[in-house]
Computed example of a mutant assay.
Amino acid sequence: MSKPHDSVPALRRAVRILDLVKSTERPPLAADIARQLDLPRSTVHGLVAVMVELGLLEKTVTQGYRLGARLLDWGGGVTEQRDLVTEFYQTLESASDLAAFTVTLTVLEDTDVVYMACRNSATVLGASFRVGMRLPAIFTATGNAMLAEMDDNAFREWLTLHPASTWPEPLTPNGIRSVTTLVREIAEIRERGYAVDDEQVHDGLWCFGAGVKDHSGRMVAGVGLSLPQTELGRYEVSQLGHMALALAQALSRRLGYRAAHADSV
């Protein structure tokens, strides 16, 4: 008699395939999946064919596989997220001055930011961003920008739910370590309108972020502009911050946000 956990091996293999596809920077081929998971090629070909049919995977033009749209449907709020990503890319089309930067779109989930969209620059950043990646919000420009968009009550509630004792270890020596530092940072972001990640995620990488609002004035996302520290001298820090803020405001307008209307509701 087989053990209970072996009763549905195909399902377990399918989940392993999804995990692999999610964690791989380039869409893997079926042969790559078979090799990395040590599965028979015939088994993998059969599984991925069904997963594509069900919308769990999508086949790319390079014959690799990426996560399918049906997974987003299961995640909830899929319409809003698709609209958000679509509007993000359309906003970038008219922002030619941002071609030198890696531009990211994130949403806040508890203590993490989740990357929903990314347009990488040709400049070597020393760090890679990909859709689906998660990072601790307190170390990121977009995460802190979204926290700063909360009102005082909501921010205090967030701190209560996520005390400093539960925070992850900093990713670099510059990472925020205390509530006092975070509160001070949030106050500065609210005053100037944008957040700065000064090598908190990766040594040698800076990011400038701002919060995005929907038609009701609700904070729904953050946008970030990333560049290597070696390129920082070409700009004023405030210039980079205001570029991120301008992008966030442009995306907010595309989502229907109108400051005067939202503030009067």
Rank of each mutant, 00 (worst) to 15 (best):
V179E: 15
D214S: 12
T106V: 10
S226L: 07
F88N: 03
A187K: 14
R16L: 09
A210P: 02
P163V: 07
T181Y: 04
Q90G: 13
S2T: 08
T104W: 01
G193R: 01
A221C: 12
L108V: 01
R41H: 09
T91F: 01
V48G: 01
G68Y: 09
W74Y: 15
R258I: 09
H45V: 14
R190K: 13
S238P: 00
R41Q: 15
L47D: 08
G55E: 02
A221M: 05
A148E: 01
L108H: 04
V85A: 12
L47W: 04
S96L: 09
A69P: 12
A34S: 15
M146T: 03
K3S: 10
T111N: 02
T43H: 08
S121Y: 07
A246F: 01
K3E: 11
L98W: 05
V114Y: 02
I189G: 00
F155G: 04
S128Y: 09
L125R: 01
Q81T: 15
A137W: 03
A137I: 08
P4M: 03
V131W: 05
G204P: 13
R41F: 04
Q229F: 04
L67C: 13
V107R: 11
R234Y: 08
T106D: 12
K22Y: 06
E231A: 10
A122G: 13
S238C: 08
L57H: 04
R41M: 11
L98E: 11
A31F: 05
R234V: 03
E80I: 05
L71T: 02
R156V: 08
A141M: 10
Q36P: 03
A250N: 14
G46R: 15
S121V: 08
A195K: 00
S96A: 12
T166V: 12
R258K: 07
A34D: 04
L54F: 06
A262Y: 01
L251Q: 06
L125S: 06
A259T: 09
T180F: 06
E157M: 11
M51V: 00
A262N: 06
T140V: 10
G68K: 05
S128K: 14
A262T: 03
K22L: 14
H202D: 10
L98A: 11
L171C: 11
H5P: 01
T181V: 12
Y115T: 13
R41K: 12
W158I: 03
L92N: 12
R258C: 10
E231W: 00
P27E: 05
P163A: 09
L56A: 14
R66G: 10
D203T: 14
P28K: 03
A244D: 01
V237E: 13
D32M: 06
I189N: 03
N174C: 12
Q249L: 11
E149T: 07
S121K: 09
A248L: 00
L125I: 10
R234T: 08
D197A: 12
A117G: 15
H45G: 00
F88G: 02
L227V: 06
R192C: 07
R156P: 00
R13C: 10
V48N: 04
V8H: 14
I176K: 07
A34N: 07
V78D: 11
D38F: 05
R190Y: 00
E80A: 15
R26H: 14
Q90K: 12
S96D: 14
G77D: 10
M219H: 09
V131L: 03
R66Q: 15
V21G: 03
D214H: 09
V196Y: 06
V183F: 05
A14N: 08
T181W: 06
P40I: 03
S121N: 08
L54H: 14
A259S: 14
